[in-house]
Amino acid sequence: MSLLELPIGTRARISGIQGRMSRRRVMAIGLREGDTIELLYKGAFGGPILVKNISNGSQIAVGRGMARRIFVVPL
């Protein structure tokens, strides 16, 4: 499923990131395939999604369009 479909508060492993540019930007900021993440918040009114990367301790906000291209496997 995509990151967008992940319920709040669940942990998941990133299984894939779609799109050349998206991949570069997502990976540059430190979200990689294989990382364990937890979805913290979904912004109100279709706002961005806040993700905690358990693997490296960082927190990243991702717009919904981008979140759609990040695939995860719930743990």
Partner: peptide, 12 residues
């Protein structure tokens, strides 16, 4: 051309 989506670090 779509604006690149938001992707930022939210530091502690």
């Amino acid at each position: 051309e779509p604006s690149p989506e938001l992707i930022i670090e939210v530091p502690s």
